[in-house]
Design a protein around this nucleic acid. Structure first.
Length: 601
RNA sequence: GGUCCCUUAGCUCAAUUGGAUAGAGCAACUGCCUUCUAAGCAGUAGGUUUCAGGUUCGAUUCCUGAAGGGAUCACCA
């Protein structure tokens, strides 16, 4: 449809002004609500071709389209430099019929996207294993998972991965504290999720550490020195050394506590509805990174300082010098990231892109990482992309685990499910549900609310979460869209009961389209374009905005047009069909966000 | 201090990538359930797009400068 019009405009330029302009070069936009029409051509730029003012240009092209493309363009109007095109009813009904092929809406030609023969790795989540997931991780996971779904829907092969930061001083801290204060406590015995239990000892470490520092300072030790001397800190450092030496006792404790954390994470991931195709462990990848850094040193890409530490000089690129290996030969964060990237390209040699879903606080880190990979001679360094997203702030500012201002992921999900429950019970619309069905619904609604809340905002921007106000269920929210889907489901169910056969609509009988029907068809037809935009910008927010528009448009139709009390049989069928198509569009797009939709609520 | 990012209605966010009178939701107010789910729909009110310049037919969008906020610049991750 859109292409037809663009081609028509292109033909108009050729016929009227003997000027060649391709259909792809022509940009159409949606007509604003307060003017008649569906598509709008901005004519300001074309004045030098037509040698007319914008208004006259619009008139001329509009007239040409009306005369030569009358099956699509029924009429037009010109307001200043804007040519608004009003589509013929027949073409809109036609468009609907094309999308809604009567069988399975998801398979309609308009909705099927070309396969691109590209493989993309999307990394997300990648938490440290010393504490449970929080709200920031939720944004990360939902974003990465949704981008993976969007890229897949847009014709890419997608591999979802994460790197598990399972080694380092932070885990040793939890381990030391557990040995000191834990008295052999296990998740089973304590009835606490494994990740929360380990997180508890991480906090315990910090508390003890602070007390020791305070005691030392009271004895007259300088604060900085106290931070390094505190016995519990020294213990943690010793444990890290033992771990690197693979001391059996330390190693088995490390495996045990990491195991608890993985079990806890797995529960949370499952509840969140995210998963991974492949896991990488830092405890594996840091060794490869170290080897490649040594190779780079031999090749002269890096240099060694007198103390034995190894560095890369990026001052020519406008950046600083960066440490790659400590003087004692142990690796830093960058070392393992080099190793991880190389491993991934070994695992997937035909990779077109490697996407890192990581917060924007690490922009500098990834800039450096990609430059280093390039310096090491990996051509694919160009194909690495940092999908950088903004932090989730609280009204009090940044979340800080040490100050106890983090919003725990498990708690938040539970809280939202509880809200869904009380809200549903208030409205009393699910009589006949078993308890199991009801609980599944609360879960669907609660998760839908959080996911939509976190995904509707442009990923690049930082956003605010106010725990006091909680997440809404009305207006521009997940449950509102889910509600719209449930509403339509009720209509489709009733249509089946009434034997209304939407597979056989006589489209010739469909005339006098209501304004809301036209708008709805237009909105639905935008799907492939929105999907492509979302994929190009790695932005689920585009999808969220779009699916909200569809839901709003449908509810307007629902309020203004009656379906079952319509006398005309074909119109009745058409409206049920349009409803079903709207529902399918909502479902497909919500799934791109990782959100499920209920049949009743 | 260097580099990068942000600032749009009381609040949370949009704005088709330079286009029309800057739009939604929440909060406030007014209508609409005897008809398909009112978690809905319609309406009222709310703006010097942080400020000052510039570029052009046209700027929330691009450029320069200023103010306020944030991130980062570790032998941390």
């Amino acid at each position: 449809m859109e292409l037809q019009i663009k081609e028509g405009i292109s033909a108009a330029f050729a016929a009227l002004y003997n000027h060649s302009i391709s259909a792809e070069e022509i940009a159409l936009q949606a007509t604003r609500k307060d003017f008649a029409g569906t598509y709008t051509l901005v004519t300001f730029p074309y004045g030098r071709i037509s040698k007319l003012n914008p208004e006259q240009t619009g008139q001329a092209i509009g007239e040409y389209l009306k005369a030569n493309l009358s099956n699509v363009v029924a009429d037009y109007n010109v307001v200043k430099g804007f040519l608004n095109l009003e589509l013929s009813e027949g073409s809109q009904v036609n468009l609907f019929a094309k999308i809604f092929n009567g069988a399975n809406v998801a398979d309609s030609p308009v909705f099927s996207i070309e396969e691109k023969n590209r493989t993309v790795v999307v990394e997300y989540s990648s938490p440290n294993t010393n504490k449970p997931l929080h709200l920031g991780h939720l944004r990360n996971n939902f974003l990465g998972n949704s981008v993976a779904r969007i890229l897949k829907a847009n014709g890419n092969k997608v591999v979802k991965v994460q790197i598990i930061n399972d080694r380092g001083i932070h885990i040793c801290k939890s381990m030391v504290a557990w040995l000191k204060f834990g008295e052999g406590e296990t998740p089973e015995a304590a009835g606490i999720k494994g990740d929360h239990l380990v997180g508890k000892y991480y906090v315990a470490f910090d508390k003890a550490y602070k007390e020791e520092i305070a005691a030392l300072v009271a004895d007259g030790v300088e604060k900085e020195a106290a931070e390094k001397q505190a016995p519990i800190f020294v213990e943690a450092q010793e444990m890290l050394l033992k771990w690197e030496a693979k001391d059996p006792e330390v190693y088995s404790l490390w495996e045990k506590m990491n195991g608890w954390v993985y079990e806890g994470f797995e529960d949370t991931y499952q509840r969140m509805g995210v998963d991974f195709d492949k896991l990488y462990y830092e405890s594996d990848t840091y060794l490869i990174g170290r080897d490649r850094v040594m190779e780079g040193l031999e090749k002269g890409v890096f240099y060694k300082k007198e103390d034995g530490s190894i560095w890369v000089d990026l001052t020519d690129e406008g950046l600083d010098q960066k440490l790659l290996l400590r003087s004692d030969g142990t690796s830093v964060y960058m070392t393992q990231d080099i190793g991880t990237a190389i491993m991934r390209y070994e695992d997937y040699p035909d990779l077109s892109q490697l996407i890192y879903t990581v917060g924007n606080e690490q922009e500098y880190h990834f800039k450096v990482l990609f430059l280093i990979l390039k310096k090491l001679g990996y051509e694919w360094a160009e194909a690495c992309y940092h999908l950088s997203y903004g932090m989730v702030d609280l009204p009090s500012g940044k979340m800080k685990s040490r100050e106890g201002t983090v919003v725990d992921a498990d708690d938040l999900i539970q809280q939202m499910a509880d809200t869904a429950k009380s809200r549903t019970e208030e409205l009393g619309k699910i009589e006949g549900f078993t308890e199991e069905q009801a609980n599944a619904l609360y879960e669907t609604l609660g998760l839908g609310a959080i996911k939509y809340f976190l995904l509707k905002v442009d990923p690049k921007k930082r956003m605010l979460f106010n725990p006091e106000e909680s997440i809404e269920f009305q207006g521009n929210t997940g449950p509102f869209i889910q509600y719209t889907y449930a509403r339509i489901s009720a209509i489709v169910r009733k249509a089946v009961q009434l034997d209304i056969d939407i597979a056989a609509i006589d489209y010739n009988q469909i005339t006098d389209l209501h304004e809301t029907e036209r708008d709805l068809i237009y909105a639905i037809s935008q799907y492939p374009e929105k999907l492509a935009l979302a994929a190009n910008e790695y932005s689920p927010a585009v999808v969220a905005q779009y699916v909200y528009d569809i839901a709003k448009e449908y509810n307007r139709f629902y309020a203004e047009v009656s379906i079952f009390s319509e006398d005309d049989v074909e119109k009745r069928k058409f409206r049920v069909g349009l409803s079903a198509l709207a529902a399918e569009t909502i479902k497909v797009n919500m799934n791109l966000l990782g959100i499920n939709v209920p049949n009743r609520m």
